[in-house]
Each structure stands twice: as C-alpha cells, then as structure tokens.
Amino acid sequence: MELLIDIVKDGVIDSVKILPFLFITYLIMEYLEHKTQDFTQDIVQKTEHFGPLWGGLIGIFPQCGFSAAASNLYAGRVITLGTLIAIYLSTSDEMIPLFISEQFPVRTMIKILAVKAVIGIIAGFVIDAVVHYYHKIKGRSLNDPVNIEALCEKEHCRCEEDDHEGPLGIVKSAFVHTMHIFLFVLVLSLILNAAIELIGSENLSAMLKTSPVISHILAGIIGLIPNCAASVIISTLYLDQMITFGTMMSGLLVGAGIGLLVLFRVNDDKKQNINITILLFVVGTVVGLLLDLIGIKL
C-alpha cells in the first residue's frame, strides 16, 4: 500500500508541475488563433531561422514544462523541427535541483548547462537547414503554415463556437486543452512510475555500468523514459562517479521530460513522431559518445 501511495504521489506531482506551462502555452495559442493569425503567420516565418537559438537557451531552465510547451507549439506548426529538437536536447528538468542538493560546484554545473544549450542550438540549426534543403529539392514550401486549429479539432474543445469568442472563451478553450493533456500525462506517469518501481533503480544503474558503447545506448534509452526519474538516476550515477561525463550527457540530452509524451498526444502524424524520437536519440547518444572519445570531462 505504501508503494502504491508513493507511485500515485510521484505521478501526480510530475503531472501537476507542467500545468502552468500547458495553460500559459494554450492561452497564447488560443489568442494567436482568435486574434492575430495572419500577423502571427508572418512573424513566425520571419523569425523561424532564429528559433533553435532561443529554444536552446530556454530549454536549460529546470522544468519539464518547457518541452511540453514546445511539443504543443510544434504540433501547431508555430515552431520548427530544429527549434523543437533544440529545446528537447537542452531541457534540464531535475538535473539542476539534484546537483544543487548534492552541493555540486556551481561553475561546473553552469558549464554542463552551457554544453547542453550549445549542442541543442547547433543541432537545431543543422536540422532546420537539412529540412529546408530537403523541401527545396522536393519543390515543397519551406514554411509550414501555422495550424493551431488542428489541435482544437483533435481535442474537441469547440473553439470555433460563439461562446468561445472573447477573453473568457479563450481562457475556457485553453483550460479544456490543458485538462485533456494533463489527464493523459497523469495516467501514463502513473504507469511509468509503477514500471520503474518494479524494475528497480538499482537494476537500471547496473545496466549503465557495462561497456562504453552499450552504456551510452542504455543511457539514451533511459533518457527516453518520459519521467523526471530518468534524469535523477543518470545524474546520481555521475555524481557517484559510476558513469562518465559523456554517458551522463547521452542520457540527459535524450531526456526531454514529458515532451515526447505530449508530442505523441497532440501531433497526429505518428510516423513523424517516431522519426523525431529516433532523431533525438541518435543525436543525444552520438554526441555523448563523441564527448567521451574526445576526452572532455567536467
């Protein structure tokens, strides 16, 4: 019973933490849809080339909510794929609080955050450049239209109805979107917490002490777990000097909190979601392995 209570408590806490981010994101998106869609389309097209820069910098703040917000913005085509990946790669969730609680040197912690941000920014710009080149040779438009209405249709929030017009209507629609995603994340968080408890943190830790290449792959797989517990395990092992800096980075770069979970919920193109997940995993683990091969240590 005590274990069940802990699982439920952790699941609720993990889910509640993203509520403010989700609600603010949907408020902004609802306002953009109802009030300034043409203007927004123009602004997005003019500033999208700088998206990975802002995404990499924003992502380093210690909250899973930013990656969730990014997933919603990408599903509405408000941000580019490169910006989404930049935020995913730089997202830090529970790493910073854990380092602070262990009195980890602040200077070293800042360096780690800087490395994550730089990797996210570079990867984001490269990905956007590749996507733009691919679209160009295929003769497709380089800019996807902002498509916030698709989220409304998927969530059945009835945003188009008269009673959803005006400030109160925008708040109501944003609330409906937020609760749908919150309940979805809550249920899956409970399932994931139960799975982690059954497997055991010790078993996950033991798997990361194998050969260098395998440890990076396993760290990346653990990082994919849409739960802050993954980054806690990886960061703790690094603090205990059981894994290398590169191995830790593999897990933390891939770890996007509940961002991927939200992406699969709000973005209808499941094949695209899988490709994004694979792309995130490959970039994170390859960069982590390269950091070890180069011999970078912090």
Results as ranks from 00 to 15, higher is better:
Glu149Ser: 15
Gly120Met: 02
His180Met: 11
Leu190Met: 12
Asp93Gly: 02
Asn143Ala: 15
Asp128His: 07
Arg107Met: 11
Ala150Glu: 12
Glu160Pro: 04
Ile96Val: 15
Lys154Met: 11
Val171Lys: 01
Ile148Gln: 10
Glu161Leu: 03
Ile121Lys: 11
Glu165Trp: 00
Leu98Trp: 08
Asn147Gln: 03
Ile112Val: 13
Ser101Glu: 05
Ser92Arg: 00
Glu165Phe: 10
Val146Cys: 11
Leu142Tyr: 01
Ala150Gln: 08
Tyr133Met: 13
Thr91Val: 11
Cys159Val: 11
Ile121Val: 15
Lys138Asn: 03
Ile110Arg: 00
Arg107Leu: 12
Val118Tyr: 04
Glu160Ala: 08
Val187Glu: 07
Val131Asn: 14
Phe125Val: 09
Val146Ser: 05
Val131Gln: 15
Leu186Met: 08
Ala150Tyr: 13
Pro105Lys: 07
Ile122Arg: 09
Ile137Tyr: 02
Gly139Ile: 01
His156Ala: 13
Asp93Met: 06
Gly124Pro: 09
Ile191Pro: 03
Met95Lys: 06
His132Arg: 08
Val118Asn: 05
Arg107Val: 10
Lys138Phe: 00
Ala117Gly: 09
Arg140Met: 03
Ile148His: 14
Ile121Gln: 13
Ser141Asn: 12
Arg107Asn: 06
Gly120Leu: 03
Leu186His: 02
Cys152Gln: 15
Glu161Phe: 09
Met109Thr: 00
Phe182Tyr: 13
Cys159Leu: 03
Phe104Val: 11
Val106Thr: 10
Lys116Pro: 09
Leu186Glu: 09
Val171Leu: 10
Leu98Pro: 05
Val106Met: 14
Ile100Gln: 14
Val185Ser: 07
Ile110Asn: 00
Glu165Arg: 07
Ile100Tyr: 11
Ala117Val: 04
Gly120Phe: 02
